[in-house]
Amino acid sequence: MNIPTGLDPGIAPTRAGAMWFLHLRNELWKLFGKKRTYIGFGMFLLAQNVMLLLFRFTRWQEQVERLLEGNGYLAQEFISALTVAVIMLIPQVVLLMPLYTTLVGGDMVAKEAEDGTLRMILSRPVSRYRLLLVKWVAGALFALLLVLVLGATALLCARIWFPWKGMFVFAPGQAFAVLPAGEGLARYILAHAFMAVNATTMFSLAFMFSCFNMKPAAATILALSYLFVNLVLEAIPFFDRFEVWLLPHHFRCWLRVFDSPIPWPEVLQSQAVLLGANLTALIIGAAAFHTRDIKS
């Protein structure tokens, strides 16, 4: 039997960029090899179908029709796949998205530390910053994919039951819009770009906690707690003047893209705040991860 003698000299150290992509590929293999990664996708699909059934077979549809007719619109023109898809998205974005993005974010570093695989990786000549950045990018790709699947399945499932017509968006105190189908679809797609930023921010929060020396569940719960405290504070009238400091206020900018015209300054301001929150979480997480001791 031959004794292994070493690396093939033909592929010994290649460009740093190629290594970076190999490391990203590793993280994606790890992430999408786990069954729990798919819980979010499955639950979104389930929730959408339950909502569709409710919409179809309860008085919910009548209420929407009354609301439209009360505002002078022909209800039959706007009870459509696009309208139903957006109606389904609102509760999922508020309730389910934080759950599944923080679940993955909380696992990202803390689970590896808990299982001992982080120790295996860090006995190799890879920098902690690079490892963390690659993990964050993999998590951000997961968040993006989750949002894309959420949007696509909501629209496809809604299309099975409802016709392709104009779009009506109504969220009390946040949005009221009536759009033709083509423009509605374009806005629907644009809204997902902003929803992806929301999902990434939620993921980043949990990821930041995950970088500290704590259990994965603790990181997830801390991130969820932070988000829910923000949500509660925002609901208290006293905090109205502080709403720009609260993340949920900025998360809702995806609904603003249905306004006509789109209030770009406000939307971009919210995006800047969310990107800043992502960067802050990443920097704090990186600092904590770099300084901590990794022990069995």
């Binding site: 690396l7 592929i11 293999w29 190799r124 890879v126």
Partner: peptide, 14 residues
């Protein structure tokens, strides 16, 4: 495959 790439790219033959 995963663990080896943290040191250097490693061929399948290795």
């Amino acid at each position: 495959q995963i663990l080896s790439t943290y040191s250097a790219p490693t061929p399948a033959s290795r």
